[in-house]
Every structure is written in C-alpha cells, then in structure tokens.
Design a binder for these strands. Structure first.
Lengths: 159, 159
DNA sequence: ACTAAATCATTGACTTGTTCAACGATTGTG
DNA sequence: CACAATCGTTGAACAAGTCAATGATTTAGT
C-alpha cells in the first residue's frame, strides 16, 4: 500500500491507473472538478502572502479592469451569490483595496472601484498567480494551453 | 431578480460583454472555476431526485467500476480529505448503497464495494447526470468535446 | 527480532464557502 | 399611479473543506 502510495505521486500505481481508466475518465464534470481543485490549491498558495483568497482576488481582477462593475455585475460574472459579493467587498473595502461609489445612473447600485493601494497589491498578486498557473500547466504546450482556454471559454460562457 | 439572471444567461448584456472581454478571459483558473460552477449546478440539479450530491455520486461512480477502491484511494482520486470520505461513505452505507469490506491484504484498510441497491441507483443517477452534461455542452461539437476531455485530463492529472 | 516511523480509518473541532429568505430603497413597466 | 422587478444588504442555515489527534496495523531500518 505504501509503495502504491509513493508511486501514485510519481508514475501512477495500479490503483491510480485503474481509477484513471475508470468511467470518470471521460466525465468532463469530474475532470473539471479535479482540475479546478488543483487550480484553487495553487491559487490559494500563491495568494497566501498577500492575505487573499481566490474569490477576493477574482473580484480585484474584475475591478482592476476599470470597467466599474456593479456588485450585481460581479456576482453574475463570477457566479457568486450577491450576499457573498457583499461580504467579500466589505473585506476588501476594509483593507482599503476597493471602494464602493454610487452609480450616478441608478441609485440602487454601487460600482466598485479600485484604490491605488488595491491596484498595487493586485499587480503583485497577479504576477504571483500567473507564475503559479504557469507552473501548474508547465507540461502543456503553448498550443494546448491556448486550445484549453478557447474550449473552457465556450464551456464557461455557454450562449 | 430571476429575469435579470436569465437575461445574463441568454444574451449577455453590455456589462457581461465588457467583463467577458476582461483580463479574466484568458485566466484558465477563472474559466475553470466558472465552468466547474456551472457543471456543479447542473450536476446537483440532476442528482436531486436521487437525494445525492455530486461528491457522493463521484464516490458511487468510482465504486461502480468494481475496482474495490480503498477509502484512501477514493480520497486521492477525488482530492478529498480522508475525513470527508469517511463521512460520505458513512452516509452511502447508511442508505445501503455501498458497504465497507476489510481488505484481505491489509488490516488497516477497507475496500468500498457497491451493493445491488447502490448499483441500481447509480445506473439511474448516471443516466441523469449524463443527460444534464449533454445538455450543458450541447453547443460544443463532438470534436470540441473530445478535445476538451483530453486537455482536461492533462490538467487534472499532471505527471 | 525489535523499535520507530509510516499508514489507514476515524473522530471532532474549526474554517471557509454557498444558498436561501427577507427587507428597504429605487427603478421599470403597464 | 400602482405594482413588479431590481439592487444591496443582513443573517440564518447548510455544505464543503481543513486540520489535529487517536488507535490499530504495516513498513522500514538496525
């Protein structure tokens, strides 16, 4: 069992091979979940020095584009519940990384804006995340990676 | 609220378009997370009539292959904490869908085995999940879908 | 042969993430 | 103008994930 274990990390022992060959192999949902889990782990590790979680980082990334997203926009794009967005933005705002501005065209709405401090932190965090991602996908060719992005875009935004 | 969500799902308003063009567009992590979230939602909806969640279903899928996975095997393959596996298998076992057999080669180890009842439920659930997934990816060509699986396999199982 | 380290399943506390309901203020629609 | 829809918010409940520790068993090293 132990040898099965060690080998599992290296070359794939019989148990892992058997499971890799399992019905789940063709299961996009399973593969997505697993790939996502790996990505999340790497992301969280990369963001830890900035005291950020992936969710907060994603919001920063959206806000950094200066498209002045409403909270609602953010919720939809990131597929977060509006109440999650409130909580996450509260945190970021408390840290001085973003601020809420009233939307001049609709008094129900806030737009979320990056602060200078937020922009600076995001730049560093962005570099770290990108490096982690490059590392995670180092075994993919540039063509494979590009192809993957294209296909994932289709899946992530069905329309 | 619902109509707004529906619209976002259908045509993509200007805000969604702007965000679609955002820096996150090329962010594999973001795309993975979003695709995974959609997949999870569809999966959970499909499994609701069976009173299953995706995690439990994944375990059933592994066990259904008759490869007699240990709990440890399951934990690694599905990237679950061993304590999660305990809890999930407890639930499935309580429902009579799986059982734990002692592994004859190692007294520390249980192997997880499908019951007849479990096999029957899995078959139905599997059909439902597949149908949901087909629906979710209906806009992908067969070639795209196959390509996606191949690439995800590379990402999900780096080695 | 013996001992210490490693492994498995387990328990349980804690943290993080998600969902849902309800609310007041504001906007859109008929 | 009245009502339905929308936005952000609060907060409770649920789901999922993490971590530490334990006892039993196996493995590795001497």
């Amino acid at each position: 069992m132990k040898s099965s274990r060690d080998v599992a990390g290296d070359s794939g022992a019989s148990a892992t091979d058997r499971m890799r060959a399992s019905a789940l192999k063709d299961d996009v949902s399973f593969l997505l979940a697993r790939a996502n889990a790996l990505s999340l782990s790497a992301g969280h590790a990369a963001l830890a020095p900035f005291n950020l979680r992936v969710r907060s980082y994603s919001i920063l990334a959206l806000v950094a584009d200066d498209i002045r997203p409403s909270q609602r926009d953010i919720a939809e794009h990131l597929r977060l519940d509006p109440s999650q967005v409130v909580s996450l933005i509260d945190d970021l705002q408390t840290r001085g990384l973003v601020k809420r501005d009233p939307d001049p065209t609709d008094r129900r709405t806030n737009v979320v804006v990056m602060t200078d401090e937020g922009r600076e932190l995001f730049r560093s965090a962005h570099d770290a995340v990108r490096a982690a991602e490059r590392d995670l996908h180092s075994h993919l060719s540039p063509d494979q990676r590009e192809r993957l992005s294209e296909l994932l875009l289709l899946v992530a935004f069905p329309d």
